[in-house]
Design a protein around this nucleic acid. Sequence first.
DNA 1: GCGGCTTCCGTACGCTGTACGGTCGCAGGC
DNA 2: GCCTGCGACCGTACAGCGTACGGAAGCCGC
Lengths: 231, 231
Amino acid sequence: MSTEIHRSGDRDRLEALLWRAAPVSGRTGARPALGIDPIVVAAVRLADAEGLAALSMRRVAGELGVGAMTLYGHVPGRGELLALMLDAVLGELHPDERSVTSGNWRARLDAVARANRTFLLRHPWAAQVTADRPPMGPNALRKYELELRAVDGLGLSEPQMDHLVTLVDGFIRGSVGRGQAPPAGALAGFPTAARVVAATTSVREDPERSFEFGLERLLDGIGMLIVNPGR
Amino acid sequence: MSTEIHRSGDRDRLEALLWRAAPVSGRTGARPALGIDPIVVAAVRLADAEGLAALSMRRVAGELGVGAMTLYGHVPGRGELLALMLDAVLGELHPDERSVTSGNWRARLDAVARANRTFLLRHPWAAQVTADRPPMGPNALRKYELELRAVDGLGLSEPQMDHLVTLVDGFIRGSVGRGQAPPAGALAGFPTAARVVAATTSVREDPERSFEFGLERLLDGIGMLIVNPGR
DNA sequence: GCGGCTTCCGTACGCTGTACGGTCGCAGGC
DNA sequence: GCCTGCGACCGTACAGCGTACGGAAGCCGC
């Protein structure tokens, strides 16, 4: 089901599709009744609603009222479609550029973190696709650019800026979808865990609170760097 | 390929398998030539070597010199096998309990973070399995217990302790497998990204350095909490 | 009108997880 | 020692997957 990119020519084709490069355009033959964008939109809708496991080429084609193999005339394969879907939804991030470039650094990074979190909560499949490290498209690059601007002008070196953006993104990816309650019966022999579980289940430990806690700690630590950038 | 747990009875069966509960044991009939442990060991070896996508029931059975359907006499299905594999490899973590319970808090959390990182680098598939939130087995619970002890006795509340462990684990999960170089050609219109890419490609931005940077910031931020636990 | 290119897609192949039911070997009762 | 029955093993089969291949059909330039 993963279906990575294998053939090297498909990589170039994916790059061209990501940037919506116009085809060679020796205009002749039947003109297409379908384009990349409707395919990607339908696929994103399906993945949002039912998850990546339900996203089969046949299902996507069915949603479009088209034969399964028709998709392969527009997209090299499933792996490339996933990469296109990822870049498409990444375009939703930071719709207002000023929210991540105005205010002090802490407000900016706070906005970056929250935007990425709601993004991953809306499109949980995006995390799985990112894990395959698809090539960056225009929207991924735009996101990288904007998040770098959020940490620009603070007296940090360029590698520090990159690390900081990577750090915040990584924290978000790690923070979504965490925490399952252990079976309260089997806590014998785990005294500290038993104590913590007993104390937290009464307080309704929710991932939201855990995220807020982690973000606070992270921004505090980043603040110590910004005050003294000498590593 | 994901193959989650569907039937509710399988959940109970998985729980029993995780804790290696002895079967009902009305001893009669042929005694098994195969057990859960060899299956899990073979599956882990296969996943380590070729990734989760190559882990099919038929492949695992083949490695054991056994028919494919034989596995279903020991394990309810693929999803449950993944959960068993995860708990099995989690047993590798913190082999020396003192490494995460001795020294000052920073050394302890440093040890926790590095152990989890090398663990995820050795078993990249574990991150994917964790994303499905399988039930915690004995080794997952042991890991939770030990990591809680690393932040015990610091004057923190129990929810704070839980959040801290979740934060470090999440940071690790987010930090492994990050960073792909953008196609250097298409950086027009992204001045900050262009500047950073130009500065970092010459320094060979490696994920190792990014991890060290993030861990330092994270521990700094946690230190501020420990100095003043009043939230 | 026609030749050729392009798009659409039916069929097919090898793979997947797993439901079903048959076969067989071992253990307990007599 | 034999019979009975249970449990382990697993061959077959089915639905569904990604996608290679090649035919059918539509549209363009001439």
